[in-house]
Design a protein around this nucleic acid. Structure first.
Length: 728
RNA sequence: GGCUAGGUAGCUCAGCCGGUUAGAGCACAGGAUUCAUAACCCUGGGGUCGCGGGUUCGAUUCCCGCCCUAGCCA
């Protein structure tokens, strides 16, 4: 029996979990459930990652203590994971006594062994806030290409890298004041000394080959010392013997894996040292997103080695998740939180879909709504569950008991014989191939039933026995599939176990068919997804600026979402303040965000937002060229009608001249009766990317002003204007 | 900019250490069936395997260049 300790990246406690987190958690959970089903001793631990500047500032802006903030968010995270059937053996917090203990212990060990250097550095300091500023909390003009409004570490326009001190006209994101330089002594972990060990470890099979290739580049560049201290004020653990200095969040975050396991050990009387001491024969597997490889494949093994602990057996990195082929982005409506999904749909379809797309590599993967509906309905409902569903009735009508023998044992053996192959696929995390194999078997089962046609046999009372035989075969084939799918679909497996009168407990049980036993009454084991409900995952979110769907007046900084959406693409740095802070939260200071979120805008725009209490900044200055990207045109409203099922929308038919008639959904129903609009001239953003909504596609945006509700005012040109004229 | 990964049917993806007519599921068309959650079964249409060179008897698969996408750059 193997002993396996598994972790997934610690979600940062400054926002809600989203699909990216869930992807990683599902991958990890499936792997763990598989290991347990095989009979191994396997523990899955995780924790809320709670330290650092973003959390300190977010708590400040909410007027609560950081402890209160992280307690609240930790509880949300826990509930969201549970909602997706992610079964942690322990979910802890990095702001815990265990984590403090291990962080201090590791620091002392590193220091005693000469792995910690002291050095004075110069850093940006916000005198008004009384704090040193992480690079991403300083903005200014790029010293190389003079693009304004760039972060303190690199330029989005010319990709130059520099320090905040190099910026022209630097500004603190926290207070808007100009930062000054100040010296401070910091502690550095001497990573370079570990290079030989790391080179060997990365080629030991611990990480995917493509990832190891990536690391070559870092070795080639030379490993630099790592700054592991931060100055007060900072939310974290103060460094013993260094008053006013705190451990950098990225030092104590992975130690949180140990802390969480330590808490589990106490609860279950396990021997912590047997798992973590150097030379331990237990396995240690980390599941992470590819964005945080650096920390897990260089710093973390080196820190463990340097402090006398064992190194990870493997670090498994996955790619990023996109939604409908696009980055997750709130302004595009493609940002899906765990909660939003759970409010609408059950967890297992998503678990299956993720599994069906996850391979062992770091390729990105796409959550396509249409594909999701098709795969789940076709595979799970149409194929797998259908096998049981179509056989159950015949057995029930013929005594409710399985036959004593299988009519085609060879076919059963073919199914059961796939178990080692499928097991190997699970083991290597190639879930996608595993799902394909399983679905191919499901096809075979349906073909078998189709060939035997029990419904014909059932017409002849003398052949009842044959009917039961065929269905016994069918139900046994289904049972095998239920085992194979159990790691992905634990709930379905449990209900299948109840139907079969025999719980699904161990992988090897599939070797023997289930014969002669009574079946419970069949209840539907999975239901079809409603495309409409699935589509609502990405429909205009009431608490967000809903892009093309309606006038941009309502609740949010009008420019914000649009600018954010275009900024990256066009390379034009018209990034509004709202994005700033969130990006800062993500990349500069922060910690193991579970990865998967592609792109800062995505994570950032999310409700978990921004730590920094920036002023409600006006949108960034733009150039004439930026403005020219907007195709603003005068349109005449030909038709306006209410949209059934949407209490905010009007469906407009707008003539833009030259025969160009657009359908535009505008969120102005609360202020305008349809009749009031017909015949009027309005201003339309004509080159806005069309946006699919539940009710149709919106092909533009009508401009309006006002706070929302009844206070909405459509913008009108002066008399004499013609439809189609360009606004400039 | 450097690096890593990816660009294969309408969609989501396999395949490819070079080799007969490039695969699957979904979608679509036709047929069959009615046990099953309009599920299942059979048949079919559909791809210049990102673009351009090169190596080779032969390249989607190897090499070079370019384009596009994503991520990382402590």
């Amino acid at each position: 029996m193997r002993r396996i300790l598994v972790t997934s990246a610690l979600p940062y406690a400054n926002g809600s979990l989203h699909f990216g987190h869930i992807l990683e958690a599902v991958q990890t959970d499936v792997w763990c459930r598989y290991q347990r089903l095989r009979g191994h001793e396997c523990y899955y631990v995780c924790a809320s990652d709670t330290h650092g500047t973003p959390i300190m500032l977010k708590a400040q802006s909410e007027g609560v203590a950081p402890e209160e903030l992280i307690a609240r968010i930790g509880a949300e995270q826990r509930a969201d994971y549970e909602g997706f059937l992610v079964r942690h053996d322990w979910f802890h917090s990095t702001h815990s006594p265990e984590n403090r203990e291990y962080t201090e212990r590791i620091f002392h060990a590193l220091d005693a062994a000469g792995h910690v250097a002291r050095r004075t550095i110069r850093q940006s300091y916000d005198a008004q806030a009384g704090m040193f500023l992480p690079d991403r909390y300083v903005k200014g003009t790029c010293p190389v290409c003079r693009t304004p409004d760039q972060y303190g570490d690199s330029c989005e326009n010319c990709s130059a890298t520099y320090t905040p001190l190099d910026l022209i006209d630097p500004v603190s994101v926290v207070t808007g004041t100009r930062p000054v330089e100040r010296e401070s002594e910091h502690l550095f972990f001497r990573l370079g000394a570990f290079e030989p060990m790391l080179r060997a470890w990365t080629r030991s099979g611990a990480i995917h080959e493509g990832v190891a290739n990536k690391l070559e580049e870092w070795f080639a560049a030379g490993l630099k010392d790592w700054d592991i201290s931060r100055d007060a004020p900072y939310f974290g653990f103060e460094i013993p013997g260094h008053p006013g200095k705190f451990f950098y969040v990225w030092l104590d975050a992975p130690i949180g894996y140990m802390a969480s396991f330590a808490a589990l050990c106490r609860a279950r009387a396990l021997d912590f040292d047997a798992w973590w001491c150097a030379g331990s024969d237990a396995e240690l597997h980390h599941f992470i997103g590819k964005d945080i490889l650096y920390f897990h494949t260089l710093f973390w093994p080196a820190v463990l080695e340097g402090s006398g602990f064992r190194k990870p057996t493997a670090v498994h990195a996955h790619g990023f998740l996109s939604v409908n082929g696009q980055k997750m982005s709130k302004s595009r409506g493609t940002f899906i939180t765990a909660r939003r999904y759970l409010e609408r749909l059950p967890p297992e379809p998503l678990r299956y879909y993720f599994a069906a797309k996850l391979g062992s590599g770091i390729e990105d993967l796409d959550f396509s709504l249409d594909d999701f509906v098709a795969r789940v309905n076709a595979d799970l409902v149409g194929k797998v569950v259908n096998i049981a569903s179509r056989c159950a009735g015949f057995v029930a009508r013929s005594g409710g008991r399985l036959a004593e023998r299988l009519p085609q044992p060879a076919l059963y053996d073919e199914f059961a014989g796939a178990r080692e192959r499928i097991a190997a696929l699970y083991e290597s995390r190639d879930f996608a191939t595993a799902m394909r194999e399983i679905m191919a078997l499901a096809d075979r089962a349906n073909q078998y039933i189709d060939a035997e046609k029990p419904w014909n046999l059932a017409k002849d009372p003398a052949r009842t026995r044959e009917v039961v035989d065929v269905c016994t075969q069918g139900i046994n084939l289904f049972r095998v599939l239920a085992y194979y799918l159990a790691p992905v679909l634990p709930d379905l497996a449990e209900r299948a176990g109840r139907f079969l009168g025999h719980p699904i407990a161990h992988w090897d049980e599939v070797a023997q068919p289930l014969l002669g036993t009574a079946l419970a009454s069949y209840e539907p084991l999975a239901t079809r997804l409603d495309p409409k409900v699935v589509a609502s995952l990405v429909e205009a979110q009431p608490d967000a600026a809903d892009g093309a769907a309606s006038v941009s007046s309502a609740t949010q900084p009008a420019g914000a979402t649009k600018a954010a959406a275009t900024a990256k693409r066009g390379g034009t740095p018209s990034v509004p303040a709202a994005k700033t802070t969130s990006d800062g939260a993500r990349s500069s200071e922060a910690a193991p965000t579970a990865g998967a979120a592609p792109g800062g805008a995505a994570t950032g725009a999310q409700g978990g937002a921004p730590a920094a209490p920036v002023t409600e900044a006006a949108p960034t200055e733009i150039t004439v060229d930026d403005f020219a990207k907007l195709d603003l045109r005068v349109g005449r409203v030909l038709e306006a009608k209410l949209v059934e099922g949407a209490d905010k929308l009007l469906e407009l038919s707008v003539d833009l001249g030259a025969g160009d008639v657009r359908t535009i959904f505008a969120g102005i129903r609360s202020a305008y009766a349809p009749d009031r609009l017909v015949g009027r001239h309005v201003v339309v953003v004509a080159n806005l990317k069309p946006r699919k909504m539940r009710f149709g596609t919106s092909q533009g945006m009508v401009l309006a002003a006002g706070p929302g509700g009844t206070e909405l005012f459509v913008v009108s040109p002066d008399d004499g204007v013609q439809a189609g004229m360009r606004v400039k």
